[in-house]
């Protein structure tokens, strides 16, 4: 350590560690836009209700939506989506705690995306509030889903995610009477990271608020396709 004798060489690199993922994300975006698909990246902790939200969306959008499911293991979630009426492709990460743009690129190669009716691709990320936040998948809309049993203090505990979401969904609103979750606090703290965030309070189980949210997504892809 103290030998400053000779040939020490410093090599400047200055490269973002996410650059490879970001290149795949750009390619995905090109493929998806080329097929007229509007893409969602749905991120939450495990058990917040991502798949239940997607089942509810499947009933609203039907054959207009396809879904990529990300899980550590099992095709269970893809089967739930198929039963609800949409094409689903399951990515089993085998341990990885997030989806990356390369995995999504690979999934796109396996899916039937040629239907004229298809205009929406929803990607359900692996349940995790930290790791997925740094990985752009090529989405048009990033959605952070928070369920009320998790507590109203979660937003500022996970700023790397909630500072990047276009939409905050607060789910399981049917449980609010039994909990101390302060909805206004969660919204205010999310706006403190992200003043432009759109907020929806829903219960995917009862359907409360889902039509309003689906209408918002629909206006996004209708605007996209002109």
């Amino acid at each position: 350590m103290c030998e400053e004798t000779s040939a020490k060489q410093k090599v400047e690199i200055s490269e973002s560690v996410m650059s490879k993922n970001d290149r795949f994300a750009a390619e995905n975006r090109k493929i998806l836009r080329g097929r007229g698909l509007y893409t969602l990246n749905l991120i939450s902790s495990p058990g917040a209700g991502k798949t239940t939200v997607l089942e509810s969306m499947a009933r609203y959008f039907g054959g207009r939506m396809a879904v990529i499911e990300g899980d550590i293991q099992t095709r269970r979630d893809a089967e739930r989506i198929e039963r609800a009426g949409c094409q689903a492709w399951q990515i089993e990460t085998g341990g990885a705690c997030h989806l990356d743009a390369h995995a999504v690129n690979h999934a796109l190669g396996h899916m039937d995306l040629d239907s004229d009716e298809l205009s929406l691709l929803a990607i359900e990320n692996v349940g995790n509030l930290i790791c997925p936040s740094g990985y752009d998948l090529g989405e048009d809309m990033r959605i952070g889903l928070l369920s009320v049993p998790e507590g109203d203090d979660k937003v500022l505990k996970y700023p790397s995610l909630f500072s990047t979401v276009d939409v905050l969904i607060i789910n399981k609103m049917d449980l609010i009477p039994h909990l101390d979750f302060d909805v206004d606090r969660a919204i205010e703290e999310c706006r403190s990271l992200n003043p432009d965030v759109n907020v929806f309070t829903v219960s995917a189980r009862t359907g409360e608020g889902m039509e309003e949210f689906c209408g918002f997504v629909e206006s996004g892809f209708l605007r996209n396709t002109g």
Binding site: K8, E12, E15
Partner: peptide
């Protein structure tokens, strides 16, 4: 999140 530089002792 960047790799800025590396130092090599030849």
């Amino acid at each position: 999140f960047t790799v800025d530089s590396v130092e090599i002792d030849e």
